[in-house]
Design a binder for these strands. Sequence first.
DNA 1: CACAATGGCTTAAGCGCTTCAGAAAGTCCA
DNA 2: TGGACTTTCTGAAGCGCTTAAGCCATTGTG
Lengths: 358, 358
Amino acid sequence: MAGTRRRPTLDDVANAVGVSRATVSNAYNRPDQLSASLRDEVLRAARRLGYAGPDPIARSLATKRTGAIAFMLDTGLSAAFSDPALSITLDALATTVDPEGHALLLLPGGHDGGPPADRVLTAQADLAVAYSLADGAPALRAVRRRGLPLVVIDQPVVPGSARVGVEDRAGAAAAARHLLSLGHRRFGILSAQCLSTPRGGPLTAEEALRSRQLYNRERMAGYLDTLATAGVDPAGVPIWETSGLSREHAMRDAWALLDRVPRPTALLCMSDELALAALAVANRHQLAVPGDVSIVGFDDTPPARWAEPGLTTVRQDLAGKGRLAGELALHLLRGGQPPKPTTLDVELVVRGSTGPVH
Amino acid sequence: MAGTRRRPTLDDVANAVGVSRATVSNAYNRPDQLSASLRDEVLRAARRLGYAGPDPIARSLATKRTGAIAFMLDTGLSAAFSDPALSITLDALATTVDPEGHALLLLPGGHDGGPPADRVLTAQADLAVAYSLADGAPALRAVRRRGLPLVVIDQPVVPGSARVGVEDRAGAAAAARHLLSLGHRRFGILSAQCLSTPRGGPLTAEEALRSRQLYNRERMAGYLDTLATAGVDPAGVPIWETSGLSREHAMRDAWALLDRVPRPTALLCMSDELALAALAVANRHQLAVPGDVSIVGFDDTPPARWAEPGLTTVRQDLAGKGRLAGELALHLLRGGQPPKPTTLDVELVVRGSTGPVH
DNA sequence: CACAATGGCTTAAGCGCTTCAGAAAGTCCA
DNA sequence: TGGACTTTCTGAAGCGCTTAAGCCATTGTG
């Protein structure tokens, strides 16, 4: 007739069949609570009426579970997904929680190191996962206020939350030692955004060590400490903050380091993405890798393997990290207490992009 | 005291302040409905009691809006996000709907060309977006049954849904013409998964044209028709379906085409990702591009520009596509009728990966 | 054969919020 | 001064579902 007919509800089905509302509910949620024949009849009636099953929202209100996990990022989606490290972690996480019926609700970051607080407060989710947000991001406080269980990845532990992290510092140290052992003494460090108001360009060691991201600080400390121990003055090591999230930006920034006189013989990069940009720009300017400059990355994402030459990098178990985060999420959702923070091992993978200093 | 205290509700706040529940609700949702001072008092009381604002689920039940948009994919997250084309589209979509308070709920694909129907039926979302799902995916029926508004991207139009697509066929035709005009007569086509039970390996033209994905069919038809018109027998053009979603698979498959005798002088690829894999494998086997073989892609994603040589490809406005999908979503959410399907233009971008046949 | 156990269904009390139609109290203007 | 408005707040009816508790008839048991 006129306009759209009201969607049928559980009650409509119950009335049509002549049973109570509870019985229809049971037909969907607890088949063992009614006879098979009645269940059949109910389901048939539902189909006939165009009833698509219990309304997810009403069900959520009654059960106090939404079946969604909020995934909080510190950047927009495009930047986030262009990083294979995130894609792999996220996929593993999703795959782990999927069998239990949990989907991921994406909360991309604004400009304060995470999603806006009000988005978190109104997000329909049973639990939140924070993926390397800035320390003290408003989103974290919002999660707190709501009393949502929280899993943090690559972040300082938040009271009451479960945490999974990576041996960032040790990995970075291993990378630096590797280069030192090849005879390198003139280094450059290419870093992701560090400052709370990122500006791109040169950074002092102090600034770099105050990065708002834990993994950044840890890796930076791993590099600088190791160099210092070997007698390389950190103050003399140029550090460059990228000015944007795209490959183009990273290439420009890498070149800013490689174009110095005297040229660094080795570049320590905060991620494979940055290292690959450096590789590309070295290539473009006819610098031989590793002949003229050695380059190391961090993460060991798939593109690091395809690169020409292969990228020497610090491998972390990205899929394992996501899987573990997923298991922690499920554990918390079952009412479990947050276990002790886990820190995953890393391993230096030497490929063709590093060699002895000429 | 014992265990966790029950979370405070709107009622608790109302009682604490001594006002009605409606007033507290208004304090949050319609500040103009009460005096500023009372509102202040309410908010203060809420803070004091540890009330984090109206429960999103209860609110949803009352308002019948969840603030989430379900994004349905035909693959898992990792495969999906390793494709820059999706990342860019998704980011633009998210950015468009975000200001209106909508977040994205990710529904990754199972094995029937989309997410499982029950996931769709229980997903908490106001609207669904289908991103190049297989024709007739169960997920689409589930959306239908629920009566959810639907936006489809790169798919056949579904009755009652809004659609945005791309001139896939024309773009593919342009790419083929370009190669023909360079004198090429021996082609190979590298395709994404076509068959409903993908097996990888050679495909007949008929099989390829029956791909379960619309864009695949269209591009394929664009290639084959154009070649046929130019007198190149489609039956003589080897078509190879990729055997997996990773770069490694794609490289192996590309080599299967390039290693034929006689070797094709030009490779038509269904996407930039495949073309880049072909480029990499040509490089690895010392085949000059475009000297020995010309390669074209489709999409014009950023890596196509960085490639060495730059990839000749068909540009589509990925961000525009996502933005448009977002606007369509908002339109439908406001109760608007689905407008006529939109088809976005494409443009051939000639770079270094194609050249005259030797 | 009386009694407990079981299966099958219903009753009813929520879950926490929004919103519409007022009521009460002030404000304005002729 | 009094009627027409406003402003500010309340009452109450939902939104559509789940689930504990209970009722009744049947079945099994010693």
